[in-house]
Write a protein that binds this DNA or RNA. Sequence first.
DNA 1: GTGTGGTGTATGGTATGCCAAAAACCAGGG
DNA 2: CCCTGGTTTTTGGCATACCATACACCACAC
Lengths: 228, 228
Amino acid sequence: MTDTQLKIAPIGEGVSLKARAYEALKTAILNMNIYADGAELRLDERDLSARFGVSRTPLREALAQLDQEGLVRIVARRGIFIVRKTKAEILEMITVWAALESMAARLACQAASAEELADLHTLVDKFSQDEVARQMGEYSEANIKFHQAIIRAGKCALIGEISDGLFFHMRAIRQRTIFEQDRAKRSIVDHTQIVEALEARDAETAERLVREHTLRLRDHVERYVQLP
Amino acid sequence: MTDTQLKIAPIGEGVSLKARAYEALKTAILNMNIYADGAELRLDERDLSARFGVSRTPLREALAQLDQEGLVRIVARRGIFIVRKTKAEILEMITVWAALESMAARLACQAASAEELADLHTLVDKFSQDEVARQMGEYSEANIKFHQAIIRAGKCALIGEISDGLFFHMRAIRQRTIFEQDRAKRSIVDHTQIVEALEARDAETAERLVREHTLRLRDHVERYVQLP
DNA sequence: GTGTGGTGTATGGTATGCCAAAAACCAGGG
DNA sequence: CCCTGGTTTTTGGCATACCATACACCACAC
């Protein structure tokens, strides 16, 4: 495919300061272990604006957005605090995730292309063949990819958006690899069955398997994961 | 119950100007028929701040929040535009709604109190008995209450939050009573069956019925509703 | 020592003004 | 009449200054 149009170089960072501050803060919060004991959960507008080199205005807008997304909580004349999700909130997020991904699986039975199904198949095969050699971290990556691929195959952008938000909130927890403890083998079996149902275009079964798989994760977290 | 505590009057509206501007704008947009031909879909920061009697800063923050929620779209140096949802987006919202409410129904089979089930029963009986006499508007109200009651009975706050957002976005459409055209009788049957399944604590059936009910609405909209 | 009231300080909320880019407008030439 | 170029206006983005309140600290009375 030859370009007949002149592609304009993106000159400066065409992004607004607000958007950049938002991304910077989001990744900063993500890469921080907010569950550590001595973690500084308080942010200061003036300090941040000085460190970013921008004024408070765009920074405040970025923080307001993070507040709305639930990553931080802004309290008037008190401060801005990084939110630690409670266990109950985590469980609710997994529940919603189960609802959305199972619906995505249902949709995928109609909407998924043969190529997407092949990709899913590959994802499963890949880490079932040499599961032993894999480190938990790599398995976790593949695990995430698998679930995201199902959601994508459902072709419902809104499900994808909401799920992405949930994934983000849970990443701080998932990093501790607690979720996957002792669940890898069971997951591989589950995933295999899910792919089979998708390939058979069996919506009822695919939906049920995905839902049960994720709700089992929910129960696992409820029973064995302890959160501050 | 006698109050032994001194109830402090809320002196001034303890709410921030941003929050008030947000609410005002939200209801204003809601009460506006944005699908009319001559509808003014453009907002102006300075004009709004003058009309509200507040400065641009809190107003901008309120608008930024509405932007994130998808009610308006802010384009730098172009303007702020009220968003008209496309038909595809409406269909996706109904799909997500189906996923969430069916999960809520499943949860409700475990979590719903006898009282909540009785309330649901009442809601169904109420407008099945004298459905003929009801105006479509009243039916629509009862319809919404029914679905919200199911979600509440599931006891998952996050499902409630997300659903509320979806409901809001669809209200502009629902006001046109297009959704319910020719669907009232079928809905009443559906609702009756749903309540029966809930009362039987039959999670599988309740989930399936709710999902099918909402997905039928989706198909109805897809086929018969025409959006600009 | 303890409680109380005042005062200073930190911090988010708000108002205001300027800036740059996009759009609208306008004048001139063909 | 239409295109073209520049100029003005509009509009959201950003910086800055000030405000109001929650909190901490301290002096003082008991």
